Simulated assay, not measured.
Amino acid sequence: MDALDVVKVVAGLLLLIGGGEALVRGASTLAAKVGISPLIIGLVVVSAATSAPELAVTVGAVLDGEPGLAVGNVVGSNIINILLILGVSAIISPLVIKRQLVRFDIPVMVGISILLVVVSLDGRLDLLDGVLLLGGLLVHTVVSIVVGRRETVEEPAATDPAGEQKKPMPLWLAALLLVAGIGLLVLGAQLLVDGAVSIATGLGVSSLVVGLTVVAVGTSLPELATSIIALRRGERDLAVGNIVGSNIFNIGMVLGLPAIIFGEGIPVPAAAIALDLPLLLATAVALLPIAFTGFVVARWEGWLFVLLWAAYTAYLVLASTEHDALDGFTAVMLWFVLPLVTITLIAVTSYEVGVIRGRRAAAASARRSEEHPDRS
Rank of each mutant, 00 (worst) to 15 (best):
A286S: 13
P289L: 14
V296R: 09
E264H: 12
A270M: 14
G263Q: 08
P267C: 10
V268C: 10
I273M: 10
P258Q: 06
I273F: 05
I260Y: 07
A291W: 08
L257A: 14
A272L: 03
V285N: 00
L281F: 13
I290A: 12
G256Q: 00
A274F: 09
M253L: 14
L277F: 12
A298S: 10
V285M: 13
L281H: 04
V285Y: 09
M253Q: 02
T283D: 02
L287P: 02
N250M: 09
P267H: 06
P267M: 13
L280R: 06
A270R: 06
E264W: 14
G294H: 11
A282L: 15
P267S: 08
L281Y: 03
I261A: 06
A259L: 08
T283Y: 01
A284W: 01
G263K: 00
P278I: 12
L275N: 04
A259E: 07
A286H: 08
F262E: 02
A284R: 00
G252H: 02
I260E: 01
A272Y: 09
E264D: 12
A271D: 13
P278H: 07
A286R: 05
A272F: 09
V285F: 11
A284H: 05
A270Y: 08
G265Y: 14
A298G: 07
L280Y: 02
A274D: 12
A270C: 08
I260D: 06
F295Q: 15
L280A: 12
E264R: 07
P278F: 11
G294E: 10
F295E: 12
A282M: 06
L280E: 05
A282F: 10
L277K: 04
F262R: 00
N250W: 06
P289N: 03
M253C: 13
P289M: 11
T293G: 14
T283R: 00
A259H: 05
A271G: 08
V297L: 04
G263F: 04
L257F: 14
I251H: 00
I290V: 15
V254N: 00
F262A: 00
V254L: 05
F295M: 13
L280C: 08
E264A: 13
D276G: 05
V268P: 07
R299F: 02
V254M: 11
L257S: 12
L257I: 15
V285R: 01
T283K: 00
I273W: 01
L255K: 00
G263W: 01
A282T: 13
A282Q: 07
A274H: 07
L279E: 12
A259T: 12
I266Q: 01
P278R: 09
D276R: 03
V285D: 05
G265D: 10
G294A: 01
L279T: 15
I261S: 00
P267E: 07
T293F: 03
V254F: 01
V268L: 03
F292A: 14
T283W: 02
E264M: 04
G263C: 00
D276N: 15
N250T: 13
L279A: 11
